[in-house]
Design a binder for these strands. Structure first.
Length: 192
DNA sequence: AGCAAGATTAGC
DNA sequence: CTAATCTTGCTA
């Protein structure tokens, strides 16, 4: 199975956010290989999207979004959690897709070790903060290009039966935009 | 320099 | 419902 190439991410951000549902996120961490199937994403559309970090201009934190597509954008949320995004769209458009939930596929013991053994399988990678923790994603990945990263995507041909489109979660502006997508009926998404 | 807010989560 | 906890950007 081949890695998804950076060209995949150079397209329209909403297209990437929808198309990523069903793809595999793989991490060859020092602990071992962990793989999850993407079941929930959100699109952040650059300067004209008030909820996007890039809307208020270039900063040290959001600089990766102003670069080319197909790079990892990791940031600290609420000073406590990490959120993982992949940059998208044309170079001049600072946009990204946030990964919000995965169905654990491989390396589940590693995920449980990182999250705590008591956590139910359905909650292991449910929510952006939980996803980064279970997968072992750190700030070290921020700014890395997909091609040279231990963190990458694969397509095994599996597709969701249907997609659900809703408003994004946890934002205070741009609430009306329906830019959250998830695998219909998946028990692994962050919320119902 | 000080302060409020934020793409969250676990626990009381 | 609230604490935890840190970066950014606004105000003085």
């Amino acid at each position: 199975m081949e890695r998804l190439k950076e060209d995949f991410f150079k397209r329209d951000t909403v297209w990437v956010a929808r198309e990523l549902i069903g793809k595999l996120l793989c991490h060859e961490s020092p602990a071992g290989l962990t793989i999850g199937r993407i079941v929930e994403t959100e699109a952040y559309l650059g300067k004209n999207d008030p909820a996007c970090h890039a809307a208020r201009g270039l900063t040290k934190r959001n600089a990766v979004m102003f670069g080319p597509a197909g790079h990892h954008y990791v940031y600290v949320s609420y000073g406590v959690h990490l959120c993982y995004n992949v940059t998208t769209d044309r170079e001049e458009l600072p946009a990204a897709v946030l990964l919000r939930a995965l169905e654990p596929c491989e390396g589940i013991p590693f995920m449980q070790a990182r999250r705590g053994n008591q956590v139910a399988l359905q909650r292991l990678c449910a929510g952006p903060g939980n996803l980064t923790r279970a997968m072992g994603i750190t700030m070290a990945q921020n700014g890395e290009a997909l091609a040279q990263s231990v963190l990458y995507y694969q397509d095994d041909g599996v597709k969701p039966p249907a997609l659900v489109t809703t408003k994004r979660i946890g934002i205070s502006c741009g609430q009306d935009l329906r830019l959250r997508f998830y695998w219909q009926g998946s028990p692994y998404i962050s919320r119902k």
